[in-house]
């Protein structure tokens, strides 16, 4: 049986909702920005919304063939498959944590942690080597950017010691 709600169609529906939100937000500008006879700030966004909407509707009608899902051994459940990709999700998790924590914990702590974790996740099993590389490169990047290029890096908990 052919699947109706394919991944492309779900994608198209999400885009349509996004476009409607964009158009609504674009149109809800206070009217005093519009001068009669002159194309106002809403014209161009509206054109874009129409083109994007048309593209999404096209995908909804002609979604094409979805890429086959990665082959998994028979009997393997969806959850099992997700679990097998834990490296990948952890990598994203680490990246997001890095971005959020960088301004608070500081460059040195966050970068040493991120680098060691990623190097380990990407297959380096000698933990002492991974941590040493992380330490050396963090300090090298710190020196180049902070001292060489005069970029103010957040130091977080090391604020007092390193300045």
């Amino acid at each position: 049986m052919r699947k109706i709600l394919t991944r492309t169609r779900i994608e198209a529906l999400i885009i349509i909702v996004g476009v409607l939100g964009y158009a609504w937000s674009g149109l809800s500008l206070p009217p005093f920005y519009n001068v009669p006879g002159v194309p106002g700030p809403t014209v161009f966004p509206l054109m874009l919304a129409i083109v994007m909407g048309a593209g999404a509707i096209w995908l909804l009608i002609f979604p094409g063939e979805d890429k086959e899902a990665p082959k998994s051994p028979p009997g393997e459940s969806r959850w099992r498959r997700l679990l097998n990709r834990w490296h990948f999700y952890l990598m994203w998790g680490l990246l997001i944590a890095y971005v959020f924590l960088l301004p608070y914990l500081g460059f040195v702590v966050c970068s040493v942690a991120l680098l060691s974790a990623l190097i380990f996740l990407l297959g380096e099993r000698r933990w002492y080597l991974g941590i040493s590389i992380a330490l050396v490169f963090t300090m090298a990047i710190y020196l180049v950017f902070s001292k060489g290029l005069q970029i103010r890096l957040p130091l977080g908990i090391f604020e007092g010691i390193m300045r």
Partner: peptide, 13 residues
């Protein structure tokens, strides 16, 4: 495995 994490840190900085 060493290069890519370093690129990530430099990009963020």
């Amino acid at each position: 495995r060493y290069l890519m994490p370093i690129v990530l840190v430099i990009s963020t900085i």
